[in-house]
Design a protein around this nucleic acid. Structure first.
Length: 577
RNA sequence: GCGCCAGUAGCUCAAUGGAUAGAGCGUUGGUCUACGAAACCAAAGGCUGAAGGUUCGAAUCCUUCCUGGCGCACCA
């Protein structure tokens, strides 16, 4: 199964070389040639501005170059015509070839749009990576959906993909968690308790306290060490988080514990390596640029510890505004140091590509990590990031609810799933560019009508399954149907749309933009499918048997593509609503 | 104050530096009552937040503003 624009670009490059050999074009280095979908049907199926791109290096007029490219364009089985219009070169696919692809799609079945571009390459996707301090919020799940979908897309492109969850089970927050649980434990048993000022106040801490009592009775009342509370809370909350994520189809291959970079000492090795490069220093306060804006900052003064802390030269390293602390004056690392050590570990594991999905509030942190691993001699381009903006829930009254707050109430993933279902959560979290904020419209997500994209896409699959079912009942089989009977423009348009999936997948992976799949599935595929299905009848009494069989094949192919697109998005493809 | 992200039809959003900036919802006007699970067709709607610049060509790249979100901890 070819990615048409990529193949056209290759053929185009051959055309340039052929033309150069024939002295129709002067010698020059060929830049990457772009091939896009043609904006309008009258321009054909695909187009390239290559003639305009090459005007400068070739020192010729675009029209003349276009004529040369057309003349030297290699013959292929799938291109019907190559034409030059206004400096563009337009390609039209062969209808016969397009028709044959219906049989190809059916033969490929579930493996349709499985590609080998990155066969033998290993990729890793890290997402969610929430601390085990509470249930998964709606907030976090956006990253989970983006990451999981990207992982599926990378697999479709041939990558061997590992899903990873980085598990912050060390540091101060875990102590706060342990102390919070101890307070709730004592509270439930009727003993006096001190709830930490910055403790975790969510209702789930009471549930955990009850579970702890059920398991250990009052045996921990005298316990001075927060360790047992911390471990219990961490273990239970992790399990809850894992279950919530699995419920929406996000399953991890590997959990990486922050504690492990403490345990194996790699944390301190990384610090020493950074020190050898002259990238860290000890000081009471971070050094500042002479001309830095001296913003009155009470918090900063308050935050300073008693002794010197260890700082990373973020300003020197990447032009940051501020250096950041790696080790506190207490000798305890901040989260950034283990984070750097973790990413060194990732790269040491040999991934060709490691993608992080992070919320917008983590951008500065990621820049430090990327710059630091780069300074330590790793290729920072092997680590990529998708930064996503925040999610707001919009309820029936049109009111906005904030996605999350640490201490008070926040909307849990499980609650949202109960409300709108798994498929809607996945679709709506995916469907917008990561750069845009999402207003999650709960009312729309619950609708059982075509206004709801989830329903609209799935309904297309239902219709395909439905017609296959009816055909079977009537004893009509697509078997032996002749695809060359599918000559109606609407049929051909649908076939062309079905053939776009591979290039959409490629685009999502190249741009690290999985939302494009969701957009395509709804606005392109389903949007074209429904009217076609309405008008192109397969089992109507006036449709001849041969054509009926061919059309059943078309809908069988459409069903395969719809199912594949849905499965890449982690959504179900129902046969009946 | 500084940094990152966004600003595109009334609304929600698309658009690899390429052709006349596209969809849906809503609005308006039509068609359809079925082989199939809740339909279809069309129209109106735009100075792409503003102003400069780069380019053969800019929603897209650069500069300066305006508005909104998120950051700017010895929290994670």
């Amino acid at each position: 199964m070819i990615q048409i624009p990529q193949d056209l670009a290759r053929q185009l490059e051959r055309a340039v070389r052929n033309a150069q050999k024939a002295d129709a074009l002067p010698p020059f280095d060929i830049p990457p040639l772009k091939v896009t979908r043609a904006p309008k049907p009258e321009h054909g199926d695909y187009a390239t501005p290559a003639a305009m791109q090459l005007a400068k290096p070739a020192r010729m007029k675009p029209d003349a170059i276009a004529a040369v490219l057309i003349e030297h364009f290699p013959k292929t089985d799938y291109v019907e015509s190559v034409e030059g219009v206004g400096g563009f070169v337009n390609f039209r696919l062969s209808d016969v070839w397009v028709q044959q692809q219906v049989d190809e799609i059916i033969a490929a079945g579930e493996s349709y749009a499985s590609m080998e571009d990155f066969a033998g390459k290993r990729a890793q996707v890290e997402c969610v990576s929430a601390n085990p301090t509470g249930p998964i919020s709606v907030h976090r799940i956006r990253g989970g959906v983006i990451g999981d979908t990207l992982a599926r897309l990378l697999r479709a492109m041939g990558y061997d993909v590992e899903m990873e969850y980085y598990y912050n089970d060390a540091g101060r927050q875990m102590d706060v968690l342990g102390r919070s649980l101890r307070a709730r434990y004592l509270e439930r048993l009727g003993f006096p308790f001190d709830f930490p000022a910055d403790g975790y106040q969510g209702h789930y801490m009471y549930d955990l306290a009850n579970e702890l009592i059920a398991e250990r009775g009052d045996s921990l009342v005298e316990e001075e060490d927060v360790g047992p509370f911390k471990d219990f809370a961490c273990e239970r909350i992790s399990r809850i988080q894992r279950a919530s994520l699995e419920r929406v189809g996000i399953v991890y291959d590997h959990y990486f514990s922050e504690q492990s970079v403490y345990a194996d000492g790699s944390l301190w090795q990384v610090l020493e390596q950074l020190r050898e490069k002259g990238l860290v220093y000890e000081a009471l306060k971070p050094e500042k640029d002479e001309d830095a804006d001296e913003r009155p900052d009470a918090e900063e003064i308050e935050a300073a510890g008693d002794g010197p802390a260890t700082w990373l030269r973020s300003r020197q390293l990447r032009g940051a505004q501020k250096d950041c602390a790696l080790v506190k004056s207490s000798g305890e690392p901040t989260y950034r140091l283990p984070d750097i050590a973790y990413h060194v570990n990732k790269l040491e594991r040999g991934f060709d590509l490691a993608v992080n999905i992070l919320g917008a509030d983590h951008i500065e942190q990621f820049k430090d990590v990327k710059a630091a691993v780069g300074a330590l001699g790793y290729d920072p381009e092997r680590i990529q990031v998708i930064i996503h903006q925040f999610v707001t829930l919009v309820n029936e009254e049109g009111e906005r609810e904030s996605g999350s707050t640490k201490k008070g109430r926040f909307v849990e993933l499980d609650e949202l799933v109960d409300e709108v279902g798994i498929d809607a959560v996945r679709y709506f979290m995916l469907a917008r560019s990561a750069d845009s904020r999402i207003d999650f419209d709960i009312e729309l997500a619950r609708k059982q009508s075509n206004e709801n994209p989830v329903y609209y896409i799935q309904n297309a699959h239902v219709r395909c399954a439905g017609i296959a079912r009816v055909a079977e009942e009537r004893g009509i089989s697509p078997e032996g149907g002749d695809v060359h009977l599918l000559t109606d423009p609407r049929e051909l348009a649908l076939m062309r749309k079905l053939l776009e999936l591979p290039e959409i997948i490629e685009q999502c992976v190249r741009d690290l933009a999985p939302h494009k799949l969701a957009f395509w599935a709804h606005e392109e595929l389903a949007r074209l499918f429904h009217p076609t299905y309405e008008e192109i009848r397969a089992l109507h009494s006036e449709v001849p048997d041969g054509l009926a069989k061919a059309r059943l094949k078309l809908y069988a192919a459409a069903q395969i593509v719809l199912a594949r697109a849905l499965s890449l998005m982690g959504m179900s493809a129902p046969d009946q609503m």
